[in-house]
Amino acid sequence: MPAVKSELTTPGAGRGLLDVYSNRFLLKLLVRKEIKVRYRGSVLGLLWSYVKPLMQFMIYFVALGIFLNLQKATPNYAIYLFSGIVLVNFFTETLGNATRSIVDNRDLIRKIYLPRELFPVSTVWVSAAHFLPQVVILVGASLIVGWQPSIYQLLAAVAAFIIVAILGMGLGLLFGAVNVYFRDSENIVDMILMVVTWASPVLYLWTMARDALGSWFFLYQANPMTVAVEIFHWAFWYPTLGADQIGLVELPPNLIALWLPVSLLVSLAVLFAGQLVFRRLAVHFAQEL
């Protein structure tokens, strides 16, 4: 005889992000679907993952590096610029797509029950698939100019990527859930994405922000994106500098010992808050959609 459960469970009750791990197969299917839908009818397909960041890099490099002459004050400015762009692109793509993930999958959500967290989490994996080709370009360009990183710098770069992924997932869960009820959330996220490139030292040196902000600089440094970008610079840009150039560069103090764990804790706090809000609001997703 088939086993009979002795306990009744509330329909739709779940364990949040833990259910994503339990439904790894569904997550894989969603990631494949997102990639196929995005490039359906596209001639270049996944090659757009190379073309878009390169075009963005060229615009910033010409406008800031050449016209404003920032490349003169920053050795290997091209590596400095691109190492920040690839990480910010990963965050902006994750947050933007996660915010729309629930609304875009309304038909599926109304028909069947599955862990709602699967949709914003799948956008993180899709963004990571686009992030990888950009990192390949970054590594290749860095090797050309003499990149010789230490194992600690490589591990720090991985930690920076994890921090950004956690932060993007937490904000994606928050805005993805709120967007079901208030579509203005997409406009708020669009404004955040406009600011994020300038709110971290992607296009300029961190010392410029320090000198301009003074005693308020600690708030700037507490931004996980700021720390992650600075770590990427330390891992990819700093090892390309020659002995005569290193003395001209000032690294952020306590970057690894203090600010890396602080940014990780902040990102985890955002993820916890995002998951809490998401679980509270997910109960009525089907009705609202």
Rank of each mutant, 00 (worst) to 15 (best):
R38H: 10
K36M: 10
L27H: 12
V51K: 05
L30T: 01
V43D: 11
K33S: 12
R38V: 04
R32K: 08
G41V: 02
K28Y: 05
K33I: 02
R38M: 08
Y39P: 12
G41N: 05
V43I: 07
N23W: 00
N23E: 00
R40W: 12
L29K: 08
P53W: 04
K36I: 13
N23V: 00
L46G: 09
K33P: 15
W48L: 07
L54Y: 01
P53I: 03
V43F: 05
F25C: 13
M55F: 12
F57N: 09
W48R: 09
L27E: 14
S42W: 01
V31Q: 09
F25W: 09
Y50A: 15
W48M: 04
K36D: 14
R24H: 05
E34A: 15
S42C: 02
L54E: 13
I35Y: 03
E34P: 15
Y39C: 08
V43E: 09
L26Y: 01
Q56W: 14
F57M: 15
L27Y: 08
N23F: 01
L26E: 03
R24C: 03
E34M: 13
Q56T: 15
G45L: 01
G45K: 10
K33F: 09
Y50H: 13
L47P: 04
W48K: 05
L54T: 13
